[in-house]
Simulated scan of single mutants.
Amino acid sequence: MEVLDKYLLKFRFIYFISSLFLATYGSSALADSTSSKQTIKALYIPLADHYAALVAYDRYASQMKFADFQIEQMKNWDLLRAYFQSGDVDMAFVMSPLAMDMFIEKPHFRWIGLMHRDGNALAINDLINEQVNLAEKRTDRKPDDSVALTLKRLYLETGKSIEIAMPHLKATHSVVLYRYLKEHGVNISFTRYEEAPVTAISVAPPKSPSFIKAKSNRNQAAAFEQSLPWADIVETSGYGHVAWYSKDVMPWKNGHVECISLATDKAINEKNKAIKEVTRFIQKAGEDIEIARSEGGIKLESIVKIIRKYIPAHSREAIIASLDPELRVINYQHLNVDKAGLKQIMDLALEGGIIMKPVDIESFSDTQFDIKTIDK
């Protein structure tokens, strides 16, 4: 028995030492694996525009080999602009005219891809719709002259410019609204000093439903042009109507350019593999969203669950309405750099006084992050 006890004691000692070694080695290996990743911090706004980033983070961040992918939600575009321009973060997802204006101010970054195509809409309140009488089905609502002429008529009747809330004055939305009104002979002002039937004002996207509600409560004409799903939120909540979608105002192959992905020169130079990995998984997440919207069911509910985890203000109904496969008013395909598509936006932004100077698109863009290039 004494001999057996000695063997048992020896075995336990060896087992203890082995376990301690494995635990220490395993922890060290895990630490080495984690430390070998490079932090990629990205800024986003709570919009359907940036859904692919949320899905990429939630589903695929743990699978990334080179990137420790992190996302931070910003309350408005000016905060995002200031934070990104400080150089303290690696990436940001930004509306294209605003991004060009940022580049003019401080060209320390490059455009590396798209976050989505199309994706914004004009919403109007009942006071405007009483004169417009929109079609019941959203698929039948097109950017004809009815809303534009109603806005002009209300201006002539009241002598007051109709305020339309935009996420930012230097937004793609401003470009879309400018083009729509111009095509129907209605002027728009982007300052309070120039008299026009329509005045664009800046209202943070999450506050746009409150803007239209407050105006309606005072029996005033109200409208906003915002990214999805905010227009869908006022429609599904019963206090506003989607008048038209940007895809019909700005027709473009595969959908017009909207929010784009930016990466700092420092991150591109020092964290190249990590930036490429994040870009690839954002596109994969975009494919996931496209599959979910077409198949519906569990796959769509899974996407809705991820979005509401990070943006609870987006209702399930509004998310599903935004991703309606029949409407297809936003899409997450063809997300590589689209220089001609950006030029379309830039030329109209310059014409409308939304941005003051053009950018050299060749210098602004970096196509090494196009997915076909990455996969070679």
Rank of each mutant, 00 (worst) to 15 (best):
W244H: 11
D265H: 00
A263S: 14
V257K: 05
I260A: 01
G255T: 07
Q283H: 14
V278P: 12
S237F: 04
D248R: 04
S261N: 13
H241I: 00
V257C: 04
V249Y: 12
S237V: 00
T236K: 14
A223T: 03
N272R: 10
K273R: 14
N217V: 08
A223G: 10
P251T: 09
N219W: 06
F224K: 00
A243L: 07
V257Y: 08
Y239L: 01
A274T: 07
E225K: 03
A214R: 15
A222G: 15
L262G: 09
P229Y: 05
S216T: 15
W244G: 01
P251A: 11
N217W: 06
N272E: 11
I268K: 00
A222K: 06
N269S: 14
E277K: 08
N272V: 00
A267R: 01
N219V: 07
N272K: 08
A243Y: 11
I268R: 00
K273M: 13
E235L: 06
P251C: 10
A263G: 08
A263N: 10
C259P: 10
L228A: 13
R218D: 15
E225S: 09
F281Y: 15
H256S: 11
L228K: 01
Y245H: 15
W230K: 01
Y245Q: 12
T279V: 11
V242T: 13
V249L: 07
A243E: 06
N254A: 04
F211T: 03
L228T: 09
L228H: 12
K271E: 09
G238A: 03
D265T: 08
V234P: 11
F281N: 04
W230Q: 07
W244K: 02
A263W: 08
S227R: 05
I212C: 07
C259M: 09
V234E: 05
F211M: 02
P229C: 02
A223F: 02
I233S: 13
T236C: 05
D232Y: 07
A243T: 08
A267L: 01
K253Y: 13
G240V: 05
E235C: 08
N217I: 05
N269K: 14
N272C: 01
K213S: 13
M250Y: 12
W230D: 04
D232V: 01
G240A: 11
Q283V: 03
Q220C: 00
I275N: 09
E258H: 14
P229I: 01
H256R: 01
L262V: 02
N219Y: 13
A214C: 00
N219F: 13
H241F: 15
K273D: 14
A231N: 12
H241Q: 12
V242A: 09
Y245F: 15
A274Q: 09
Y239G: 02
V242H: 07
I282S: 04
A267P: 03
G255D: 02
Y239R: 00
A222S: 15
K213F: 14
I260F: 02
A214D: 15
D232T: 07
D248V: 03
N217L: 13
A231R: 01
F211A: 04
V257L: 03
D232F: 13
C259T: 14
S216R: 02
G238C: 03
I233Q: 13
K213R: 15
T279F: 06
V249Q: 10
G255W: 08
V257T: 12
I260C: 03
V234R: 09
T264M: 03
V278D: 13
D265P: 00
V234N: 06
